[in-house]
Design a protein around this nucleic acid. Sequence first.
DNA 1: CGTGGCTCCTGTTAGC
DNA 2: TGCTAACAGGAGCCAC
Length: 271
Amino acid sequence: MPELPEVEVTRRSFVDRIVGARILGVRQGKPLRWPLGIASERLVGRTVLDVGRRGKYLLLQLDDGVLLLHLGMSGSLSFRQAQPAFGVHDHFDLRTTQGMLRLHDPRRFGAVVWSPSIDTGRARRLLAGLGAEPLDEAQFEPAAFHAGLRARRAPIKQVLLAGDLVVGVGNIYASEALFLAGIRPTVRANRLSRQRADRLHAAIRQVLSRAVERGGSTLRNFSNAAGESGHFQSEAAVYGRVGEPCVRCGTPLKLIRQGQRSTYFCPHCQK
DNA sequence: CGTGGCTCCTGTTAGC
DNA sequence: TGCTAACAGGAGCCAC
């Protein structure tokens, strides 16, 4: 569930409470996607200066280095005064002077990675290939977006998911944005006119910013670091609604598979 | 270099 | 009801 909106909502739900906190201790559970990359004792004494975001990565800026947090497919964070004992799916705790930050991640596709800075070491390697930030108006430009699409022959849905042209659009919001733009997910990216690319550009921004406003989507059990669920899922026009009538034209929605992922669309409204 | 397929892991759900 | 197989929101890596 964690796509850009969920990650951003998570960030906002604890940034103000954790900034200025000094790290008192670290506890790790089962291995995550990658090793932390530093002896956990070396994090003790560090101060959290800020919590940023790049794509679906959260960036805990420390006074020495940065911690990259990724929620993978099933991760969620919680930040509270005290945490109960580690449950089977709790895999990372940061105990600080201002509360405890915990990563809960049943499937363990998530990660916590230390890097000396955001543009060196492991952070550089992980962030280097990422595309434009869709909610940053200056960085996500219609002309550049269209130019990027023209260089790709893959189906538009898969180009969106790849994250090297625009970040943060996962499986749910890709289907939603393509519906809003009236574009069939199987259309090859390089076949989209400038006009249609512009519509998609606007649709991506619209669906992501609306989802942030609504606290993200809670399909199974996503909640932000304050424990609150999202509400965008009830506004989804196509995702998870195979067979239901299209909200615009009433035609039954379709489900196909693209690159082993589910894609939902309206066969009438999306060309 | 772009593309498609595979993979990590575990909980839930569909189907028999 | 119980078992098994398919499937789930990500994304790095590898072979073509």
